[in-house]
Lab assay of single mutants.
Amino acid sequence: QEEEKEIKRLAKKFNASEEEARRAWKKAGGDPETAEKILKKKG
């Protein structure tokens, strides 16, 4: 599933848990760029 792959990639890229990545993904409405910004800010 595309979403799961994206979440795993985000978690790995930002050294975050999949739970954090999933939360960022949901907050971003499934937009990878926005999710990255959220995780970057958090990191």
Rank of each mutant, 00 (worst) to 15 (best):
K5P: 08
K41E: 15
K8Y: 09
E20V: 08
F14R: 01
K26Q: 15
K13G: 02
K40C: 09
E36L: 04
E19G: 05
A21S: 04
K5C: 11
A24Q: 01
K13W: 07
K12Y: 09
R22S: 05
K41T: 06
R22Y: 08
K37T: 05
E19K: 08
E19H: 05
A21W: 02
I7R: 01
A24E: 01
F14M: 10
R9Q: 08
A16V: 14
I38R: 02
D31V: 09
K8D: 08
A35D: 00
G29L: 10
L39A: 01
E19A: 10
K41G: 15
R22V: 04
T34K: 15
S17K: 05
K40I: 13
I38N: 03
G43E: 11
K5I: 13
N15E: 07
G30E: 03
N15R: 10
E18S: 04
N15Q: 09
K27S: 12
K5Q: 13
K8H: 11
K27E: 15
L39H: 00
W25D: 02
K12T: 09
W25I: 05
E36Y: 04
K42L: 15
L39F: 03
N15P: 02
A11T: 05
K27R: 09
F14I: 03
E3M: 11
K13R: 09
K12G: 07
G43P: 15
E4Q: 10
T34W: 11
K37L: 08
A16R: 06
R23M: 14
Q1E: 12
R22T: 07
K8N: 09
K27L: 15
E33Q: 12
E3G: 08
K26N: 13
G30L: 02
K12N: 10
K12A: 14
E18F: 15
E6V: 10
E3N: 10
G29C: 03
K27P: 01
L39N: 01
D31L: 04
A21H: 00
K26A: 13
E20D: 07
A28R: 01
E3K: 08
K26D: 12
K13A: 09
K42H: 14
I38K: 02
K27H: 12
K8P: 03
L10V: 02
K27G: 09
K12E: 10
T34F: 10
G30T: 02
L10C: 02
K41S: 10
A16W: 03
E2T: 10
K5F: 14
F14N: 03
K42W: 15
R23V: 11
A28Y: 01
K42A: 15
E36N: 04
K27N: 12
D31W: 03
G30D: 02
A28L: 01
K41M: 10
I38Y: 10
E4N: 07
A35M: 05
R23T: 09
G29P: 01
K5S: 11
A16N: 03
S17A: 03
E19V: 07
K12S: 11
E20M: 05
A11K: 05
E33I: 13
E3R: 06
E33R: 12
E20H: 05
A21V: 09
Q1V: 13
K13P: 01
A35V: 06
L10M: 06
W25M: 07
E19R: 08
K8T: 10
K26P: 01
K37F: 07
L39E: 00
K5L: 13
K41L: 09
R9A: 10
G43I: 10
K42N: 15
Q1Y: 12
E36M: 08
E4V: 07
A11S: 07
G29K: 12
R22A: 07
I38D: 03
L39S: 00
D31P: 01
E33C: 10
A21M: 03
A24G: 01
K12W: 07
A24M: 01
E33Y: 13
E2N: 12
A21D: 00
E3Y: 12
G43N: 09
E4G: 05
K12F: 12
E20Q: 07
G29A: 11
T34G: 12
A21Y: 01
T34L: 15
E4A: 09
E4C: 10
D31F: 04
E36P: 01
E19I: 06
E6K: 05
K26S: 10
E36K: 04
A16S: 08
S17H: 05
R22E: 05
R9I: 08
K37D: 12
E33V: 13
K40E: 15
A11P: 00
I38F: 09
A16G: 02
A21L: 03
Q1A: 13
A28P: 00
K8Q: 14
I38S: 03
K26T: 12
K26F: 13
L39R: 01
K37Y: 08
R9H: 04
E2P: 08
A21G: 02
G30W: 03
R22L: 09
A21N: 00
E20P: 00
K42F: 15
E20L: 07
L39Y: 00
I7Q: 02
K40N: 15
K13E: 08
A28D: 01
I7E: 01
K5W: 12
R22H: 04
K12Q: 11
A16Y: 05
D31R: 06
E2Y: 11
P32I: 15
G30H: 05
G43H: 15
K40A: 14
E3A: 11
L10W: 02
K8A: 12
L10I: 07
L10D: 00
K37E: 14
R9M: 08
G43S: 06
Q1S: 13
E6L: 12
L10Q: 01
E6I: 13
E20F: 04
W25A: 02
T34V: 14
G29I: 04
T34N: 09
E19W: 07
W25V: 03
E6Y: 13
A28S: 09
L39K: 00
R9L: 08
P32S: 14
E3C: 05
F14Y: 15
A21P: 00
A16H: 04
E6T: 08
F14T: 04
W25Y: 09
K37P: 01
K27C: 12
E2M: 11
T34Y: 12
K8G: 06
K8F: 09
